[in-house]
Design a protein around this nucleic acid. Sequence first.
RNA 1: GCAGGGAUAGGGAAGCGGUCAAACCCGCAGGCCUUAGGAGCCUGUCGCUUAGUGCGUUCGGGGGUUCGAAUCCUCCUCCCUGCACCA
Length: 897
Amino acid sequence: MSYNPNEIEAKWQKKWDKEKAFEARESKGKKKYYVLEMFPYPSGKLHMGHVRNYSIGDATARFKRMQGFNVLYPMGYDALGLPAENAAIKNKRNPKEWTWEKIEEMKKQQEMLGFSYDWTRMVATCDESYYHWNQWFFLQLLKKKLAYKGKAKSNWCASCGTVLANEQVEDGNCWRCHNPVAEKEFEQWFLKITDYADELLKDLDKLKDWPQRVKTMQKNWIGRSEGVEVYFKEKDSGKVIPTFTTRPDTLFGVTFVVFAPEHPLVTEFVKGTELEADVKKFIEEVKGQSLIDRLAEGKEKRGIFLGKYAINPVNGEVVPIFAADFAVLEYGTGMVMCVPTHDQRDFEFAEKYELQKRIVIQPKDKALDAFAMEKAYVEEGVLVESGEFNGLKNTEAIKKISKWIEKKKIGKRTVNYKLRDWLISRQRYWGTPIPIIYCEKCGMVPVPEKDLPVKLPANAPFTGEGNPLDKVSAFVNVTCPKCGEKARRETDTMDTFVDSSWYFLRFCSPGDKKAMFDKKKASYWMPVDQYIGGIEHAIMHLLYARFFTKALRDIGMIKFDEPFTRLLTQGMVLKDGEVMSKSKGNVVDPTVISNSFGADTARTFIISVALPTKELEWSDKGAEATFKFLRRVYEFVDSNKSMFGKGKIDKKRLSSADRLLLSKANRTILQVTKQMAGFEFNFALSEITRLFSAVQKAENADKNVLDFATRSLVQLLAPFAPHLCEELWQKLGEKGFVSLSNWPKGNEKDIDRKAEQAEEFLDGIVEDVRHIKELAKIEKPQKIVLFTAPAWKWMAIPIAAKACEKRPDIGAVLKALMQNGEMRKYGKEVQGFVKALVPRLVLLKEAEKIDEIVVLKEAHPLLEKIFGCSIEIESADKSTHPKSRNAMPLKPAIFME
RNA sequence: GCAGGGAUAGGGAAGCGGUCAAACCCGCAGGCCUUAGGAGCCUGUCGCUUAGUGCGUUCGGGGGUUCGAAUCCUCCUCCCUGCACCA
């Protein structure tokens, strides 16, 4: 029988399902392990990134299961969001129907690939029973004052009367009607993530098993900065202008002040002056740009003078006030004190508008000249022209000036975060309705918990204009829960990031009707032990999920601080150096691979190409090689069934070839186990491949050894190619699932690395057998020590010489060789010489001419072992080494007692 | 623009101070096996050279540190990811 993946895969998928092989149950006696992949948006089609993500996750889940953990490995769908609504507008489809159809399509593909999910725990966020708890949690946050209403700007298309997502703005225009998009301010809902800014930052330290880069990104995103608020004053009115700065050391160099254009004071300042019209025009221009446009790349800084002046409280200087687009209302106070000599943005602005510059920090080694500068000087230095602070190092000055400002009451120390509160309002249909009712009498009234969930109405009109929910009167017009009078329902829905910020908890008790999740079950399974997903979620999703976890802890639902113990961010799947995307037309459909070669090949291949964390460049050709490998494994086991023994291995009676195979099997097991734990899946596969070649080559091997090697191989391969391995496991006479078998144990004692290495050498020189005779003329020594690769090439000779002195029996050979003239030179040549020598000696051994070969990989630790003495090598590092440039240190310090 | 990550042989991808002309996979070339092979096995695959070997030039580009750099530092170029121009 030849390898038929389709048949095998269907067979085992059915069996797993029938015997509920992967259903997870809480069990106190067993150690739990929660493996989770970032759940997908159900687009209906799996792409390579998904397959990669799930292949990594499934391998992990299966490995942990085999290691005896009680594994929870669920799958769900992040099913609310824009695409369903777009489909509704475009194809006149009902978003709910459309979404469920896509979920089914997606699930089917996942099942075909044989991932070991516990499907009984499937969750879809568009399910009322799921978003019910979004609403419930929102109400809890409201109670805690962690949800509030505030003003926020959105992209607004006037002609469609619709709020647009960033994605729906194309070059500043509406994607539907192509009219320009503006910003418009609305009352919208926020979650107060900033209350947790400090904790979110601090707890990053607890996340020992997160990639450093993700932590760095989050840290920068939270952006805690300590600084001071300095109170400038407007010259005429005396109005206080608080500006935030992290560089109080530059305060004496302020030459102008800048306001965010939207700042209310801007219009106030120019009211009734001749500048009013121009300033208004400027503000409109800035506002007229969509958010996207304003952030566009390479934009020149623009501003306008407001005709007013501010007094610098530290030195009484009077400086002009501008409105400028590079000041952001939401950060700090929206007002910035500008020091063009020591801040690059300020510098560019000053250059453009020909404003004054004054240097207040001088570097040690050179003197800056304000007129000659080509960019701002932002490094360290010593203060000048700064009154009583002259001569201080600027790092010192920051502390001293901050204190001084507080003392003089012209400002105060503050902490600022880049992190802003989370705007969750979306003016769209396909999201969780925000459970709020507005009553004319009672004002804003939360929907009582007993009335949850607030369900999405089934029959909303999808025209692409406005929010469909606004048009469903049965949804909008309600009675006030408090007074019973007529009232209006909130029609904003929630950002879908809300759904994805706690779904991992829902998996612990997916059907729960009474609560967001079962506290006991959650406390058993959580936190997630291994989370796996794309680097593109490094900030937002992961930060929101961390925030929710902390908020849930504070309302008593859970008792831990962080949701994900370990995080693996998988690399992107690229094609021709670019991300696969429809617009680029370079999408490779993973089902094509699985249809022609089977799921096992698709999964094993994608795992074998690159380290999970690295980018993966897709190539169609490689899959075939993986298929061939799997087929060879199949055929080998299938055709050799009768050759496998069942008995115990009798180590005393093994031939050297058998011992070698046993050694390889054991070493591979240990190696692969280590690599699995470290997510070095591609290396693990390459080890498995090597073991297979050894197994395949082992003719006339001891049946029991062969059986052990083969059996182990099947188990090691099972996390990657589970269907094939189940089939082989059965062929090997096993009754249960290999997926639930015990991970093989390697025995360190059975490993003979030296023998293996010797064999590796031998492998490479089959062609040279004819030289044996020639070489065999050398007399039989007792022992040979080889220095194949001394850690320090130039030490090879001295070490060898010392060795000769200590052990004449070894030395004899080396001496002879040196006298032979071949070891005259230092460095590379020694290696070359040794390389040439090794194969010959191996062959000699095969010919029984010598007793033993010791191959030294690192010269000195092994020397220690052999001679039983300590060898110190004074390493040639900077501290100990003479400065001499060209002189090679020919006298390495080797001390042998 | 800000923040984070990359660039290694024909392609992909390891290596991250001396064991590196650089694992592994694909491609390509030769041999074996075969009626045949798009199957399998073996060998070779930077250039020149050898019986073994040796020599020369390489790890995006320039500079630097070191006895020694693909590996560390610095500048530059290009690519990817996220974004809220964050003072």
